[in-house]
Design a protein around this nucleic acid. Structure first.
Length: 196
DNA sequence: CAATAGATCATCT
DNA sequence: GATGATCTATTGC
């Protein structure tokens, strides 16, 4: 389908902001044995840095929850927020250094019918995955995927043949109270699947 | 349309 | 015991 070769580990072994920008336009694919494949194009990301970033979970160092963020790049960090929704991050920076990228919105590509079944009845295609909690629902991503290697396996990130020429928009991050003034949110300008 | 309430729980103080 | 990297439904103008 859309997954040629997954992006290599070296793609993630860079400063978090670089990875957050480079992930725009890339494809996230989740292949499940029973249901089939769901995939989408990343249109919005946010960078969460290390101990210097008060808004990041890693700000207070290594705990059971934040261990993956300090671990090897190219792995998924999935956590529960507000007791109800899961958020997907991709770990950046060399091992030992904290940094991850929150995936905030996807443009649905494969398995749209499967996504619809997982989301409330009647939501339009543009609202299937235009938020961090929505896209994990749509793709069937849960805390089971925490620590998963996204360079191989059922949950992978890959490049699509020709995908550039879009402009990158920058703004402050959504939904945080600390370090709220930093320009660490990135999105594809004009794309209708970016969150509201 | 905007504003707001409520759902619900792992993590940290 | 309080707090969140959210979303949906509902109320009010």
């Amino acid at each position: 389908m859309f997954e040629g070769e997954p992006l290599p580990r070296s793609f993630y072994t860079r400063p978090t902001v670089e990875v957050a920008r480079a992930l725009l336009g890339k494809i996230i694919s989740h292949r499940e044995t029973a249901r089939g494949e769901t995939s989408g194009r990343i249109v919005e990301t946010e960078a969460y840095l290390g101990i210097e970033d008060a808004a990041a979970h890693s700000a207070r160092g290594i705990t059971d929850r934040t261990r993956v963020i300090f671990g090897a790049p190219g792995h998924a960090y999935v956590y529960l927020i507000y007791g109800m929704y899961e958020c997907l991050n991709l770990v950046a920076e060399p091992e030992g250094r904290a940094g991850c990228v929150l995936i905030r919105a996807l443009e649905p590509l494969t398995g749209v019918d499967i996504m619809r079944r997982r989301r409330p009845r009647g939501v339009g295609i543009e609202a299937l995955a235009n938020g961090p909690g929505k896209l994990t629902r749509a793709l069937g991503i849960t805390r089971r995927h925490n620590g998963a290697d996204v360079t191989r396996g059922r949950l992978v990130v890959c490049r699509r043949a020709e995908d550039d020429g879009f402009e990158i928009g920058v703004s402050t991050r959504v939904g945080i109270s600390k370090a709220a003034d930093l320009p660490l949110r990135f999105f594809i300008k004009g794309n209708r699947f970016v969150s509201r």
